[in-house]
Amino acid sequence: MRNKKLVDYAKYGYIFSIPFILAFCIFTLYPVVYTFIIGFTNLKGAGNTEFQFLPAVGKNLFQNFMDVLKAKTFKQAFGTTCIIWIMNFIPQIGFALLFTAWFTDRRSKVKGTGLFKILFYMPNIITAATMAILFQKLFGYPIGAVNQLLGHLQPGRQPYNYLINNVPIKLIIAFVQFFQWYGHTMVNLTAGVIGISPEIFEAAEIDGANRVQTFFRITIPCIRQIMLFVLVTSLIGGLNMFDIPELLVGSKQGNGAAITTNMYIRNLAFDGSYLYNRAAAASVILFLVIVALSAVLFFVMRDKDEAKIKKLKKAELRAARKGL
């Protein structure tokens, strides 16, 4: 082992990790555990920190969870979140891949890619809150920019209230989400493609592969890890969607058609009723959903060859041990 000399230094590995571990335990682990626990209690009311477990007050331990799962509003909020995420993610990854293919193509050498990349990434740095309010004003009723423009194009047209109708609201939120994130995804994917060894592309070119073949047979398999990363982070971000729907439409407008799971949780906990226990149960459910979906993604997109090699190695080790 090359690191035999380092054994003496092992303690620094622990020492240097202490700040991270401490901060993690205080600000993440403890609150998560606390959230789990609150889910099984009767904690509610503003500023209240006293609570009892539900069985102690004569209720089912899982009452909060059952209440949340039964609530129509929770199901609706979760459905809304998923629909908006999917409507934003499909065009997002689609355009990101398209631009990645164009900007990294060795044969056509597009000029100005640097400028385009900088422009496309720009919406991502803008505060989502600002973006949401801006779009709310643009789609305003009756005198928002969109209604004005359509009025000019078609005189005598009645202004349309986009923000109270189920489908347009979701489309607008999904569009803002797409608008803010396609550049980010593209930059990540491009970074992955740049990391691929040029020899592979040269070989493909010599073998007569055309652009489309090269992209689907070589580029995409090579950036699978990054695609997985983009997919998982986008899924987590998407299921936690809050800023844009909250400020673009809010919980009170739009007949609840734009309430996401996180808005639902915040309303339960901090808006009037202070049902901390039920909000905690709802966020635990959301967390479990995210873990389950991420696990599925990791499993589906895992490197099958690598897994096979690992299995073989393990089997060999076992055989060797038995032999000894």
């Binding site: 609150p31 555990v33 987590i236 936690n240």
Partner: peptide, 25 residues
């Protein structure tokens, strides 16, 4: 520890919020 960090990446910040608010309070 490394594996733990990878796992922690998956905990969305918002899920800790109820507990964190109580703790901060």
């Amino acid at each position: 520890f490394n594996a733990m960090i990878m796992a922690v990446m998956m905990i969305p910040g918002t899920v800790t919020m109820i507990g964190f608010f109580q703790f901060a309070y």
